[in-house]
């Protein structure tokens, strides 16, 4: 069989040139920009962005504002309590929202047949997964973490006389963002392995609930290899509180988990049959 890849001028290039159309350049992530634009469009060109923002501001800022208004009178203590409420809640509750939103990202497209349609175009499978990873991450970071965090900073300044140090707070927020990315990568990886939403939501929520309910029973030496301590680390960093000497280990480990889960998702999706 003649499978040589000798460069030849394709008729579509000839016709496109005649029409003045510029063919897309070849690269390993073919179609990434187009797919990312479409995914981002679903966040930002529809009502999704403001619905999501409204939900997260109501949940995260609502609860933390109630705490601000009801907690004791000493400003420093009040600030500690509200930060310890806001950031761990941002880690835990946003993780649940992420799993719920991302459970159908891959499976839904496999079920509907839109994945097969897109992949019949010159689009790489890696680009398909990565465009979802980027859009789900950015969408949640902005609507569920950055906007509520900005509202939180403003409300603490208005309601609590004690100053909130901005840089440590941003470090704590970054840890919450890392946690959210972990659950996006987990959901996408599960989406490439399973063909229905049930196991994806089930496993994702089970991981979150295990972190919330079983954390006290799990030895620290095991916890540091999980995302479970990220809520406490984020609050600790924001408040410049003393943390265990190994506080950085979960951050490194979760980062490694994100890379591994993304690699598994890419590997598995490359073998997917449509």
């Amino acid at each position: 069989m003649n499978t040589q890849s000798k460069s030849v001028v394709s008729q579509d290039l000839i016709l496109a040139a005649r029409q003045g159309l510029i063919p897309v350049r070849d690269h390993a992530l073919g179609g990434f920009g187009n797919m990312l634009r479409k995914e981002m469009g679903q966040w930002w060109n529809t009502r999704t962005w403001w619905v999501q923002t409204l939900i997260w501001v109501l949940i995260l800022n609502g609860v933390s504002t109630i705490v601000m208004l009801t907690e004791g009178a000493i400003p420093g203590e009040k600030l500690t309590v509200v930060v310890q409420t806001f950031l761990p809640m941002a880690v835990g509750v946003v993780a649940i929202g992420t799993v719920i939103a991302a459970q159908g990202a891959i499976v839904g497209e496999k079920e509907l047949g839109t994945a097969a349609w897109v992949l019949s175009k010159p689009a790489s499978r890696s680009a398909f997964i990565l465009s979802k990873l980027v859009s789900l991450t950015l969408g949640f970071w902005i609507t569920a973490l950055i906007v509520p965090a900005a509202v939180f900073v403003i409300t603490t300044r208005l309601l609590i006389p004690a100053p909130l140090a901005l840089m440590p707070f941003l470090a704590g927020l970054a840890v919450a963002m890392l946690s959210q990315l972990f659950f996006v990568a987990l959901s996408l990886m599960l989406g490439t392995i399973f063909n229905s939403r049930g196991p994806i939501a089930g496993i994702g929520i089970a991981v979150i609930m295990a972190g919330l309910l079983l954390k006290g029973f799990i030895p620290l030496v095991i916890q540091i290899f999980t995302p479970f301590p990220l809520g406490d680390i984020s609050a600790g960093l924001a408040l410049k509180m003393p943390l265990p000497s190994v506080w950085w280990v979960p951050i490194v480990v979760v980062s490694a988990w994100i890379i591994v889960m993304t690699a598994v998702a890419l590997w598995r999706f490359r073998r997917e049959e449509f």
Partner: peptide, 12 residues
């Protein structure tokens, strides 16, 4: 669909 093949120009 077209954007998987062509990067521009937009009017074309």
């Amino acid at each position: 669909t077209a954007r998987f093949f062509y990067s521009g120009p937009r009017d074309l």
